[in-house]
Simulated assay, not measured.
Amino acid sequence: MTTPAIHAPFLAIPQVLPTTNLPTKISFPPLTINAPPKTDLWRKPPHIDVGNVPAIFLPEPIDLNKFRSANVTVSGEWNTLYDQGGIVLYILGDDLKKWVKTGIEFVFGKPFVGTVATASASDWSLVPLPESAGGKVTIHVERETKGDKRLQSLWVYVVGENGERHAIREVAWVFGPDVIDYEGATAGGRTMLVGVYGARPTVPEGEGKENEELTVKLEGFEVTLFDD
């Protein structure tokens, strides 16, 4: 099923009640995001807290506890330091907004698979991308489960050409307060925006390129929710 998306910069996210009428599987047609220079999603205290990236989200926030998984294939003409694009999960309802982004990031002169998880500050991990990949990768993120029980971790996977998933990152705090048996859990009420994004934090070098945008291509973007 295809559902319309909304476009919004992170600084303009509305604080609204979660939607309750989305299907359990939401699929999107191929998408393109154009990211101008000086757009980024990064928090490094005490002075840096940037969130002005262009993004495409599900039509409305969802209850955090309903998120199951998302995947997308991301590609682009990565050529400027920190060029990036992929999946972004933005957690609302806390005093300090939290988010996870994962996809391609251009550093050290080539594209890597980069993942950033942000609570009070951003951390960052990189996984090499084979040259044969041509700057393209399929990313899958999924909430950890054990039988019928939903656990607190979000896992990030790279999907190979044969469909096999390779785990590259565990973010252990994403769903913590929503697990019933989680010690110290608080009341619910948190929501999540699920989407894809692109960013060009650095201004490209070269005469006449200071306004050159990064074009991020996103294919097969699909989100699944728990059926309850």
Score class of each variant (00 low, 15 high):
residue 141 V to D: 09
residue 91 I to K: 13
residue 214 L to T: 02
residue 146 K to V: 12
residue 209 K to E: 08
residue 10 F to I: 12
residue 18 P to M: 02
residue 110 K to I: 11
residue 72 V to T: 05
residue 61 P to S: 08
residue 121 A to M: 13
residue 88 V to H: 03
residue 13 I to G: 06
residue 77 E to K: 14
residue 137 V to E: 05
residue 142 E to H: 00
residue 224 T to G: 07
residue 158 V to A: 02
residue 85 G to N: 00
residue 225 L to Y: 07
residue 75 S to C: 03
residue 48 I to E: 06
residue 64 L to F: 09
residue 189 G to E: 02
residue 50 V to L: 00
residue 208 G to T: 06
residue 13 I to K: 10
residue 49 D to E: 10
residue 2 T to H: 15
residue 226 F to T: 01
residue 74 V to G: 06
residue 182 Y to K: 14
residue 111 P to H: 11
residue 75 S to L: 08
residue 72 V to C: 05
residue 194 V to I: 07
residue 156 V to Q: 08
residue 84 Q to F: 02
residue 224 T to M: 04
residue 165 R to D: 00
residue 1 M to E: 13
residue 78 W to P: 07
residue 104 I to T: 00
residue 136 K to W: 09
residue 126 L to M: 05
residue 61 P to G: 01
residue 109 G to I: 03
residue 167 A to E: 12
residue 22 L to A: 01
residue 4 P to I: 00
residue 119 A to P: 05
residue 95 D to K: 14
residue 151 L to D: 03
residue 203 V to Q: 05
residue 16 V to P: 00
residue 111 P to Q: 09
residue 91 I to R: 12
residue 134 G to H: 02
residue 30 P to H: 14
residue 226 F to C: 02
residue 52 N to L: 02
residue 201 P to G: 09
residue 186 T to R: 14
residue 62 I to M: 04
residue 58 L to M: 00
residue 213 E to L: 09
residue 228 D to I: 12
residue 152 Q to A: 12
residue 221 F to G: 08
residue 153 S to P: 01
residue 32 T to Q: 10
residue 125 S to P: 07
residue 146 K to H: 12
residue 75 S to D: 04
residue 79 N to R: 13
residue 223 V to R: 03
residue 136 K to Q: 02
residue 64 L to S: 11
residue 14 P to Q: 04
residue 188 G to N: 09
residue 68 R to D: 12
residue 117 A to I: 07
residue 9 P to I: 15
residue 181 D to E: 10
residue 36 P to Q: 08
residue 172 A to S: 14
residue 156 V to F: 01
residue 126 L to T: 00
residue 125 S to M: 08
residue 45 P to G: 11
residue 175 F to W: 02
residue 101 K to P: 00
residue 133 A to R: 04
residue 159 V to C: 04
residue 158 V to S: 05
residue 26 I to G: 03
residue 124 W to C: 13
residue 138 T to N: 08
residue 12 A to S: 07
residue 47 H to I: 15
residue 60 E to D: 12
residue 159 V to A: 04
residue 44 K to L: 15
residue 68 R to M: 04
residue 9 P to H: 15
residue 220 G to L: 01
residue 90 Y to R: 13
residue 124 W to M: 14
residue 70 A to M: 01
residue 64 L to D: 06
